[in-house]
């Protein structure tokens, strides 16, 4: 362990342990997932960054949305995201979740993912190489340090907006609201 970080560890142990144990929810949402197996096996070895896939969203705090999001996938994405315990971080891969990318005119992929769930960071590239993934992860550390990776708080604050966007896409959603949609106070 880096000695200079000792103070940080003593001051904010929770934040530091969150930062260094980013457990990824195991969900292959798009074609960027092809670079995840190389990243988590011996050659690139994501575990030295504390990144490791786990079986269920209940144990995870990092959601890698790997590529374009089709309408049918967005529903499990929202459900999975809501199941993850806070603090939780989302990182989207490639240009497709930003504005649709090369599928901008497809009738089955949504164009702006951040209208439906909050995104803490984007990694450029189609698809991002393992090095880019690690650059993104280490940048996420900085964001966590500075308290800027607060998508989950934003989700809670603006849940009524997110929920209404989700309902505009799907009509009736098959699950009850995660938070109260009325009378939310700002944290």
């Amino acid at each position: 362990m880096d000695r200079r970080q000792l103070i940080k560890w003593l001051k904010e142990p929770l934040k530091m342990s969150n930062k260094y144990s980013l457990h990824v929810v195991y969900f292959c949402t798009g074609c960027g997932i092809i670079e995840i197996p190389p990243s988590i096996t011996a050659r690139w070895d994501a575990e030295r960054f504390g990144v490791k896939p786990v079986a269920t969203p209940r144990q995870a705090n990092l959601f890698l949305i790997t590529g374009y999001v089709s309408l049918k996938t967005l529903k499990p994405i929202i459900r999975t995201y809501e199941q993850m315990p806070a603090p939780k971080y989302t990182v989207a891969f490639g240009s497709c979740p930003i504005d649709g990318g090369m599928y901008w005119d497809s009738y089955n992929t949504i164009n702006h993912l951040d209208k439906y769930i909050p995104i803490d960071g984007y990694i450029a590239g189609c698809m991002p190489r393992p090095e880019a993934v690690f650059a993104g992860i280490t940048h996420l550390w900085t964001l966590i340090d500075e308290g800027k990776a607060d998508g989950y708080k934003k989700y809670r604050r603006n849940y009524s907006q997110y929920r209404s966007n989700q309902e505009r896409l799907y009509g009736e959603l098959g699950w009850p609201p995660r938070f109260e949609t009325e009378g939310l106070e700002n944290e």
């Binding site: 074609c31 997932i33 089709s70 996938t73 005119d105 009738y107």
Partner: peptide, 30 residues
């Protein structure tokens, strides 16, 4: 199935012959 449906065949109808090359290789990532 259908979680990865992007409607490639529809998209290809709207792009020129050469523009379709970036699309077709993305049909199968493996």
């Amino acid at each position: 199935p259908g979680y990865l449906h992007r409607g490639f065949e529809k998209l290809m109808e709207g792009r020129s012959w050469i523009q379709n090359f970036p699309l077709v290789c993305r049909v199968n990532v493996i």
